[in-house]
Amino acid sequence: MNWITKVTPPGLKTMLAKKETPDDLWVKCPASGELVYKTDLEENWWVTPAGAHMRISPRTRCRLLFDEERWEPLALPPVPSDPLKFKDDKPYPARIKAAKAKIAAREKRETENGGAPLLQDDCMVAAYGKIGGVPTVLLVQDFDFMGGSLGMAAGEAFVTAAQMALARKAAFVVCTASGGARMQEGTLSLMQMPRTTLAVNELAEAKLPYIVVLTDPTSGGVSASYAMLGDIHLAEPGAMIAFSGPRVIEQTIRESLPKGFQRSEFLREKGQVDIVVDRREMKATLTRILSHLLPNSRRRDDARITALSQPKTHVPKAAETKGKSA
């Protein structure tokens, strides 16, 4: 103990004590490089002042799109965990376990102050609710779970969610985010491409809208299947949408690619994307689209609510008997 410690009053010690700063208080904008206060970023749906749309969790996506931030979580069927007994530098089950632990930690952080439940066992999360008053099944692909890779669990989730939309005569909205097929499942992962395509065809036969929201990144087998089969394709600004990455293409064709190649704005100019929508305007845009594509569902639901809210008139039995005798 030195002489400064002896003469320093206790109250001053508290004021001069070193305060610990949270590690995640600031977030670096990927577009401008500036530091953004995390609380401000969360309030702005993770869109930076420079306009960069950062990746968000399925829970945040559900809060963004569903009316009153209310939804019903949908259970998705389990699939074999390691059909090929695949192992590279670590066993496939170990990768799955680590991914689940990562998602569980994030879910714990996001539900500290309460919130509607979500059921997630792989990279897909499904929920049922209303967007602009229109009944909708929403399927969100989570890039944080092994890069949102398309495997048997993701394919089964897509087919199940599509069947739920059919059963409930609801719209089907899918938010994609994936690096492609899951290599640990080999050909079994590639088989999910035709399976999901058949599910999309069933929605088309039932005349139910299938809307795709393309987020960063959407690539590989996902972009080669259900991501490009929507009735309408929306995309967030600056999202990479591709089959192969730009570096692979440049090495193959030995030419430089155009500026903005494989970004959502470039694909809109080429006709592969219908509308590039700011995330903060996504719900309003989906509401307008769904109200045109499923107008009767909204009216039917409004009529049901009106009927339930009407007071029931009770006719006394004596009056009923009198009316019959007359």
Rank of each mutant, 00 (worst) to 15 (best):
P93A: 08
P80F: 07
L74C: 01
T197C: 07
G186F: 04
T313Q: 12
W26I: 04
T313M: 14
T306E: 11
K87D: 00
I211H: 04
S178V: 05
T39L: 10
P93M: 05
P10K: 14
E205N: 12
L229E: 08
Y92K: 03
F266Y: 15
M282E: 11
A127V: 14
F86N: 03
F261Y: 15
L294M: 15
L41T: 01
A116P: 04
Y37N: 09
A94T: 12
A167I: 00
Q192W: 03
D216S: 14
V277E: 11
K259N: 05
E265P: 02
Q141H: 12
T196Y: 04
A224T: 03
K270M: 14
V315H: 07
A307W: 09
L308T: 00
V137W: 02
L190H: 13
E68F: 09
G33I: 07
G180Y: 05
V273A: 08
V173T: 02
W45V: 05
L74T: 03
L118Q: 12
A181D: 02
D274W: 07
I232M: 12
T111C: 06
D142E: 13
A239E: 06
S189E: 04
V200Q: 08
V137H: 05
Q163K: 15
M54T: 09
A165Q: 04
L190M: 14
I103A: 13
F145L: 07
G147Y: 07
K108C: 04
G186N: 12
K18F: 09
P311T: 07
K169I: 00
P246V: 02
T136I: 04
D231H: 15
Y37A: 07
C175E: 10
A206S: 11
I4D: 05
S223Q: 08
V125C: 14
A157Y: 02
L208G: 08
T39D: 08
R109W: 12
